[in-house]
Structure formats: C-alpha cells, structure tokens
C-alpha cells in the first residue's frame, strides 16, 4: 500500500469513464485489493476535511461535493465505487442524490452518513436506494471498514439502523393497510436474530460465530433485510417515507 495515490486522488480521471468500478488506471502498480474510490458529499467543508484526513489513507477519495446538484454531476463524472452521502443537504437531501444517480449509474453504491437520530431520515435514505447507514460519530477505522464492505456489494447496518428496522417490522404492529406482498412485509426469525445482534453491536463475523452460520450467510440475511426495507409497503415504513414525500 505504498503507491502514490495522493496524486491520483486529485485527478478528475476523465479516462476512467468506460470502466467504472475498476482500479484507477493511472496507478499500474497498485496492489490487487484496490482501494475503493469514494466521493464525499457533505455540505460542511470542515467535516469533509475531517473525513479525508481520517480515511484518506485507506480509501481513494476522488471527489467532493457540497450540494445535490454538485454531487450528481461529480458522481456521474468520476464514477466512484462508493458515495459517502450526508442525509441533509441544503438543496434537497441525500435521497434526491440517490434517486438521480442510481437510474443512470447502477454500479455506484451509497453509504449514508448522518448526525440525525430521526428514524424517518434514516429510513428515507435507505428506501431511496442507499446500501447502508452509519452515524457521523463512527470511528475512522469503522468507516473505512463500512466503505470497503459497501464497495464489495455488502450492506452496512449500524446498530441504530438495525434498531429502526426492528422497530418498523415489529410483530403485531401491522398497520390497517393490507400488505401487497406479505413476504416483503415480514422478517424471518433468522433475519430478526441477525438484526438483533447487529443492534447489539456485533460484527458480521461475531454474528456468524454466535449463530453458527458463515459470514456469507449473515451478509445474505442483511441484504435481504435491506431489500425488504426498500420494497416493503409496510404501513409504518410507508408513513415514514410519506412524511418526507418520497412515495
């Protein structure tokens, strides 16, 4: 990991356009496990600088943006692996960015990052298509880990998000609206177990050890939960989203 990535991180990388998701072509001697290419979207320059200082070593920060419009054009231009996305932006919000980019670029993955404790904020950005949610108090190492996992196609549940999901899918809390797809509106017992352990602060590896399943299986459960979270017409989720005028 001694390659001079700092120089490359400043390049707009115009030659990259045909091959999204691959390692930067400007550094031929890069180690096999390429650093994920990341765009930072946050309206506070101070916060971006802080994140850059903390994780700039272990990921390749290829762009920054401070507003929805800027974020969309930057992301479409540099085609990063992961977008670190603030939920609250001055001219719209995280969900607007996800909704604008995903139809164009399917390969970009979004990781939401927020100081908000409000369930509707978290749920709305996940429902718009983000692959995970972490709070801004997360440590640098954990954030790097989360980015890497999202880049690999994994989903990231912070304990708080896991708690929100459990809350939203709680038994006996089905709303008056008849569910369109009952399977989507319920978590399997195994998924609930996984979520509970996530909420308790367990890592995937620890969950695998606890439930005697492989990490891969844990990941599958987690992404199934994410899919249900995004697709479910469950009353409570819909209400949260509707509050934010997303549905």
């Amino acid at each position: 990991m001694t390659s001079p990535e700092d120089a490359a991180s400043r390049d707009p990388i115009p030659a990259e356009l045909p091959a999204p998701g691959t390692a930067p072509g400007t550094a031929p001697g890069t180690a096999p496990a390429a650093k994920p290419r990341v765009v930072l979207v946050d309206d506070h320059a101070m916060f971006r600088a802080g994140v850059r200082a903390e994780i700039g070593e272990s990921v390749d920060i290829v762009g920054e943006a401070a507003s929805v419009a800027e974020a969309i054009s930057t992301i479409v231009h540099v085609r990063p692996d992961v977008v670190l996305l603030d939920v609250h932006l001055p001219d719209g919000g995280g969900p607007a960015v996800v909704a604008a980019v995903l139809p164009v670029l399917h390969s970009v993955r979004f990781l939401a990052l927020s100081v908000s404790d409000a369930a509707e904020d978290v749920i709305s950005v996940i429902r718009s298509g983000a692959r995970g949610y972490v709070t801004k108090t997360i440590s640098g190492a954990d954030l790097t880990d989360a980015i890497t996992r999202v880049a690999e196609g994994d989903v990231v549940f912070s304990p708080r998000l896991a708690g929100f999901v459990l809350d939203a899918f709680r038994d006996g809390d089905v709303g008056p609206v008849p569910s369109v797809d009952p399977e989507l509106d319920q978590l399997t017992p195994r998924e609930q177990e996984v979520l509970r352990l996530l909420a308790r602060g367990y890592s995937y590896r620890e969950i695998g050890g606890e439930l005697f399943i492989s990490i891969k299986t844990v990941e599958t459960h987690a992404s199934n939960v994410l899919r249900k979270l995004q697709m479910s017409s469950r009353h409570q989720l819909t209400r949260w989203a509707a509050d934010r005028r997303l549905v």
Binding site: P159, G163, L166, R170, D171, G172, R196, A199, R200, G201
Partner: peptide
C-alpha cells in the same frame, strides 16, 4: 459501550456490551 434494549409484549431484554 453498546446498549440494546427490546421491549416485546412478553418480555424485556437489555444487552450491555463492550469490546
């Protein structure tokens, strides 16, 4: 330190965990 608590109709569970 992580604190997770769940209240269901039948029981209350609380987990206090540190690494």
């Amino acid at each position: 330190v992580s604190l997770y608590a769940e209240v269901s109709d039948t029981e209350v569970t609380v987990f206090v965990r540190d690494r």
